[in-house]
Design a protein around this nucleic acid. Structure first.
Length: 936
RNA sequence: GCUCGAGUGGUGGAAUUGGUAGACACGUUGGACUUAAAAUCCAAUGAGCAGCAAUGUUCGUGCGGGUUCAAGUCCCGCCUCGAGUACCA
């Protein structure tokens, strides 16, 4: 009987589908929820890197099922958003069409690998029945505010009644900067528009106008985490600042809770660290400086109030609100010019230009609160409007940026550090100094100075301790077509919700869905995008009458809107009246293990925690973190090929031999690279435009290329399609091989050479069952040796799966089969249990043999074997005998021997005598069951 | 610059958390089967030195120190690579 994997895999995939083997329901059993980050269907299809995490999660799911858990292991598609839309644009088709096709392709590829996904729970974020609830959550956010008393989100009606009964009392400090002040009577008198404007400052989802990250090539605004190194994460296009009216989510109110929550979840430490850095908490003091001859005050934030006597200037951000009010007449023109210049710079220019110091003097002075000295006020783009108060106190002796700034503009650099040289650079350490020139702080170190100055500042009422976070509110508007419409319409420019009963607000079909350079949303191309407030239906734009028919919001939601809560919908995917029933939530939540890449650390994984906490606050969810444990699978790296062309010539080399700058590095499509990495340039000439006009001197027409490991990607010509592997070796081999490559969380290069080892292991295992093409098994009491092999393997596999050390599982299987092979074991009692053990790894293989040995039912619900310690007990140990820590020989001894007996045996051993050469050992260390060490 | 992670044979990687470093696999070499090749099976395989040989012996987990009977594992100081972040006051 041959191991015909192609036939077997097809057969079992069909049976699983027909028998709904992997569909699950609420039951009496304990639940276990294994979640994968769902893919976005991009059009390039799957490569062998994608399934890595899915295979690991599938093994865990199947294992937990054998262990008696009711396992929820769902899958779906993140089908709204930029990747899906960019693909549609590139191929000139409607996103709806390409998305559907791409999902089908993904599904087909996934199905071939034999995952135990419950596809009856499949969700697609672009499906109206799903995004109905994404829109509903937006509405909740629109209708909520963050209550500073209870420290949680609450329905905004609570705030409204508060204003109605006592005015702005509780929120006065918060509202003053916006220029509002009212008592309860005034509130009631306010018109709709004013009320709306005031409430907008509180809503969790709010409309605002301000500087945003604008990406012209993508035609949309981007959130901070969607920008990497000053360019867009998708496509790498430049990003600039632009003033745009947009929706934001007030995630910043959750900074502290998002930070604290990290302590309660078992997520990888590096990932938590990334989130902590992103949230960026810092403790400091807010201080206000009076502006000379003016009522204005400038509030600065500093983490080093101890250096207050080193202040020699103040700097404000170019976007500072009151900038012109606090400038002198004569400076206004130059300040305007400066602001203009700065806003023209792209994000990338700003980043690459950190060294250049620029700024303009406002022509006015602030008064130092302790010395009453006049301090010049400057504007500079090294101060960020969005962090702290948008103004800093310049302490050139204690901060390198302030130092550079003072140097450039010849501002005084007072030294406040006793005995420290600050002629070359600032002194930024928090230890190793005593203050001088600092009045009452003189002679103090950092800690005592901080304590004293905070006391003084609070006494003088010029400031208070303060905590700042880097985390900004998340920009929620996208000027793109392929996303959830925002369920808002505008009546007199006041935004109103389209309520749950009328959701989903379906994405209209438009002929031209392309993004525009100027930021007009493609939804503006729809001729039917107006809301009939009375009849609650969509109407043609031509009927907008501003009485009952109003324009609908044109922006759509970002890609992460749908992915921030999808793991809940799997629990109750077809519920049309609720996003999730209480019953199903309390059974299935939360996620026991979540598999996904660490690249989502500051995007999806932070937003989803925010959504969780928000929905928790409103009582829709019972936990405030959704996933106990997260596993970051590493990337599988592709093997890219390069050759180098000497600049301006047609000379090609396999390496850049002389100077990197003299060569163009040219990526070669891996398909055209033959054995031994020999490049067939003749083929390349045909296929690659880089080579079209090249002439080659090489007489063979071939070159060797260089190789590099990098992320697998279609654009790098280094992808390997899992289908190829399935064709050649089968899905079970692919599954086991991907696990065998190394630890799940590590990045590792894809190398097909090793795959034959795994494949021949499966064949060896298979062959244990057969002789001359017939089943050939004995059913009798297994030998001691067989039992030992079996139980050793059960123990190792169980422990390693629990640890998610899946690579070592594969090794143990190999060892086990090698041992059974060497003792020619064909005992069905042993092999039967091994089939269950291996079924999470190679499910088709296990099902087939399970069936062949006479079982009618699927193997998936068989109880996972338990090991029995009694078969593992050793009576002897081969002790290593070492001298001064170096092993010289081994001796086989009974484990029952006393230490003194062991010592005697070892010392009497001729080999010991030879080595000791009649020297008396200083000490003999015997660790029973482990080691013998003789110290000479 | 700051934060985090990692450096083990020709390669991917093991090592019960301080106890025989290199499991398992790939690759390579030799052999068996075959007219031949593929497939399969068997053996060897960290490096060096000595020996016909069994074997003996030295060096070996990025580098330099330290703790310990014993260090890939713990401590101190460096180096290299990778990831994240970037004027955050």
């Amino acid at each position: 009987m041959e191991y015909n994997f192609l036939e077997i895999e097809k057969k079992w995939q069909k049976i699983w589908k027909e028998k709904k083997t992997y569909e699950v329901k609420i039951s009496k059993k304990p639940k276990f929820y294994v979640l994968d980050m769902f893919p976005y269907p991009s059009g390039a299809g799957l490569h062998v890197g994608h399934p890595l995490g899915y295979i690991a999660s599938d093994i865990l799911s199947r294992y937990k099922r054998h262990k008696g858990f009711n396992v929820l292991h769902p899958q779906g598609f993140d089908s709204f958003g930029l990747p899906a839309e960019q693909y549609a644009i590139k191929t000139g088709q409607q996103p709806k069409k390409t998305t559907t096709e791409n999902i089908q392709m993904y599904r087909k590829q996934l199905d071939r690998i034999g995952f135990s996904f419950d596809w009856s729970r499949e969700i697609k974020t672009s499906d109206p029945s799903y995004y109905k609830w994404t829109q509903w959550i937006f509405n909740l956010m629109f209708n909520s505010y963050y209550c500073i008393v209870e420290n949680k989100a609450k329905n905004i009606s609570n705030l409204i009644s508060l204003f109605e009964s006592e005015g702005d009392k509780k929120y006065r400090d918060f509202l003053t900067p916006f220029g509002y002040k009212f008592n309860n009577h005034q509130w009631i008198e306010f018109d709709e528009k004013t009320k709306s404007e005031i409430l907008m400052n509180f809503r969790i989802a709010y409309l605002t106008e301000g500087e945003v990250n604008w990406c012209e090539d993508l035609g949309t605004v981007l959130a901070n985490d969607e920008i990497i190194n000053g360019v867009s994460e998708r496509g790498g296009y430049p990003v600039t600042k632009k003033k745009v009216k947009h929706w934001c989510l007030r995630i910043s109110k959750y900074s502290e809770r998002l930070l604290q929550g990290l302590n309660n979840i078992d997520w990888p430490e590096p990932l938590k660290e990334m989130q902590r850095n992103w949230i960026g908490k810092s403790k400091g003091v807010s201080l206000s400086f009076n502006v000379e001859n003016s009522d204005h005050k400038i509030e600065v934030f500093t983490t080093r109030p101890d250096t207050i006597f080193g202040v020699s200037f103040l700097t404000i951000a170019p976007e500072y609100d009151e900038i012109f009010e606090i400038s002198s007449e004569n400076s206004i023109q130059s300040i305007e010019n400066y602001i203009n210049e700065v806003s023209k710079k792209s994000e990338r220019d700003r980043l690459s230009d950190v060294k250049t110091v620029s700024g303009v003097f406002l022509g006015t002075y602030a008064i130092h609160p302790f010395t009453n000295e006049r301090i010049p006020i400057w504007v500079s783009d090294y101060v960020l409007a969005s962090y702290g108060t948008g103004a800093v106190m310049g302490v050139p002796s204690g901060d390198q940026r302030d130092f550079d700034f003072a140097n450039k503009f010849e501002i005084e650099i007072p030294n406040i550090f006793e005995g420290i040289d600050i002629s070359k650079s600032a002194f930024t350490d928090k230890f190793g100094f005593k203050l001088k020139n600092s009045q009452f702080l003189n002679g103090l170190d950092y800690n005592s100075a901080i304590d004293l100055i905070i006391k003084e500042v609070e006494l003088k009422k010029i400031g208070s301790s303060n905590i700042q976070y880097k985390l900004r509110d998340a920009i929620f508007s996208r000027q793109r077509y392929w996303g959830e419409p925002i369920p808002i319409y505008y009546k007199d420019n006041i935004p109103y919700n389209i309520e749950l009963d009328n959701l989903p607000l379906e994405l209209p079909e438009v002929n031209n869905f392309l993004p525009t350079k100027n930021g007009d949303s493609p939804l503006g191309n729809s001729s039917e995008w107006a809301w009939d407030e009375v009849n609650k239906v969509i109407k043609p734009n031509s009927q907008i009458d501003n009485l009952s028919i109003f324009p609908i919001e044109l922006n759509t939601m970002p890609g992460w809107a749908g992915s921030s809560w999808y793991f809940y919908r799997y629990m109750d995917p077809n519920n049309d009246s609720k996003f999730l029933s209480k019953e199903k939530e309390s059974y299935w939540s939360d996620v026991d293990v979540y598999f996904g890449g660490s690249e989502h650390a500051t995007g999806h994984l932070l937003y989803s925690r925010f959504y969780q906490k928000f929905l928790f606050d409103l009582g829709f969810l019972q936990k405030d973190e959704y996933s106990k444990k997260l596993v970051n699978q590493g990337m599988i790296l592709g093997n890219s090929a390069f050759i180098y062309r000497k600049k301006g010539t047609s000379e090609y080399f396999s390496k850049n031999l002389i100077n990197e700058n003299d060569f163009d590095k040219i990526r070669i499509d891996i398909k055209y690279v033959g054995q031994g990495d020999k490049v067939n340039l003749k083929l390349l000439v045909k296929e690659d435009k880089d080579f079209k006009n090249a002439t080659f001197q090489d007489e063979n027409g071939s070159f060797f290329c260089s190789r590099e490991q990098e992320k697998m990607s279609k654009s790098k010509f280094n992808v390997v399609n899992p289908d190829e592997i399935c064709d050649k070796y089968g899905a079970d081999t692919l599954r086991m091989y991907e696990m065998f490559l190394g630890p799940i969380e590590q990045s590792k290069p894809w190398d097909t050479r090793g795959i034959s080892g795994v494949h021949s292991f499966l064949r060896k295992f298979w062959n244990l069952f057969f002789k001359n093409g017939e089943l050939y098994l004995v059913d009798e009491e297994p030998s001691k040796k067989e039992l030992k092999v079996l139980h050793k393997t059960i123990k190792k596999i169980t422990e390693d799966i629990e640890k998610l050390s899946l690579n070592t599982c594969i090794s143990s299987f190999m060892i086990c089969i090698n041992e059974l092979n060497s003792i020619k074991s064909n005992n069905i009692q042993i092999l039967k249990k091994l089939l269950i053990l291996i079924s999470p790894f190679a499910p088709h293989f296990a099902e087939e043999l399970w069936n062949k040995i006479g079982n009618k039912e699927s193997i998936v619900d068989e109880v996972f074997p338990e090991y029995d310690e009694k078969y593992l007990v050793e009576s002897e140990k081969i002790y290593p005998v070492s001298f001064n820590g170096k092993t010289r020989f081994t001796v086989n001894l009974s484990l029952e021997l006393e230490t003194s007996q062991i010592e005697k045996i070892v010392l009497d051993d001729q080999r010991t005598k030879n080595i000791l050469n009649s020297v008396t050992p200083k000490k003999i260390i015997i660790v029973p069951g482990k080691i013998i060490n003789i110290v000479i």
